[in-house]
């Protein structure tokens, strides 16, 4: 009989590269958010819209095979769910409100608390650098965004294809897949950078949500006002969420009008600028942290 189990045991496995540690950071972030009941409420709200579109697609397929006359009527009434790229783009755009709310409240848990309560000390004293930490957290926010936008959109896409009579829908509409992924990626990157930057400076939930609301409620309202005041659609560019949507439309290959084409470049510049400014805001924050007090 041996008693070694109670003694200290060595461990001599191979350590993996540091950048693989980004994933546990992201996973833990998601875990922390999903442990709060409030976020399930918000996710439930996000699910409502998804279920509505889901049911519509199902209904249309069902009716189409049973009663072509009725199908035409249904098509007219539910004209926004057609299986084209626009359907998915509009769906992801409509998820915006809930996503914003979700991120606003999650910001403090994901980033602010680490800065405020010393969780950073825990991360940074391990075998990772500050940048691995930042990437991990960004990944975490990005995943949260995908959870309410990209993932449901993909499910709807698959559902639409499966309810067709042949696989032609998938074959003919590969562009849509690219569009969903592209739009989702741009959304995730922009929002995660912006949220990280704001949360690292504001830290607490209430000021964070207030500023977040300022960006996504107040500024769009002002932008709408200015657009009408000057009769100049360029003011619309102030609405970040719309800029991203324009880029999304481009990903779907759905830019038809000259108007949209004209706005595309400035919108891209603004989104890039937001990302860049956020990165600039993140750098000093992350550098300033001292691991040992």
């Amino acid at each position: 009989m041996s008693l070694e189990a109670v003694l200290y045991r060595d461990w001599s496995g191979r350590l993996r590269p540091s950048w693989l540690a980004c994933w546990p950071i992201a996973r833990t972030g998601l875990l922390l958010v999903l442990r709060r009941k409030m976020f399930w409420l918000l996710l439930g709200l996000a699910l409502l819209n998804f279920l509505f579109v889901f049911a519509t697609i199902y209904l249309k397929a069902q009716v189409a095979s049973q009663n072509p006359g009725l199908a035409r009527f249904v098509d007219r009434v539910l004209s926004n769910v057609t299986g084209t790229g626009e359907t998915y783009r509009d769906f992801m755009f409509a998820q915006g409100t809930v996503t914003m709310l979700l991120l606003g409240f999650a910001g403090a848990i994901l980033v602010g608390d680490d800065m405020r309560q010393g969780g950073l000390t825990f991360y940074l004293s391990r075998r990772i650098s500050r940048w691995h930490y930042v990437v991990g957290k960004l990944l975490s926010i990005g995943l949260l965004v995908s959870l309410t936008t990209t993932v449901p959109a993909l499910i709807l896409y698959v559902q639409y294809g499966l309810l067709m009579d042949s696989t032609s829908y998938f074959r003919e509409n590969l562009g849509i897949l690219r569009g969903i992924l592209g739009y989702g990626l741009i959304l995730s990157i922009t929002l995660s950078l912006l949220l990280f930057a704001m949360a690292s400076w504001l830290q607490k939930t209430v000021p964070l949500v207030m500023s977040w609301a300022c960006i996504f409620v107040m500024i769009p309202a002002l932008a709408g006002l200015l657009r009408r005041a000057f009769d100049d659609r360029n003011w619309q560019l102030l609405m970040l969420w719309r800029d991203v949507r324009l880029l999304g439309t481009w990903c779907f290959g759905g830019i038809d009008t000259d108007r949209e084409l004209q706005l595309l470049l400035p919108a891209a510049v603004i989104v890039l600028l937001v990302c860049l400014l956020s990165m600039l805001a993140i750098v000093p924050r992350v550098r300033a942290v001292r691991v040992v007090q």
């Binding site: 107040m218 309202a221 002002l222 709408g224 006002l225 200015l226 009408r228 005041a229 000057f230």
Partner: peptide, 24 residues
Amino acid sequence: AVVAWSMRRERSPEEFIEEIFLAV
């Protein structure tokens, strides 16, 4: 924003209420 709005041509109270007062 309101200053920017009011710099432009003459406006009616109706427009003011709808575009500024209610919206913002």
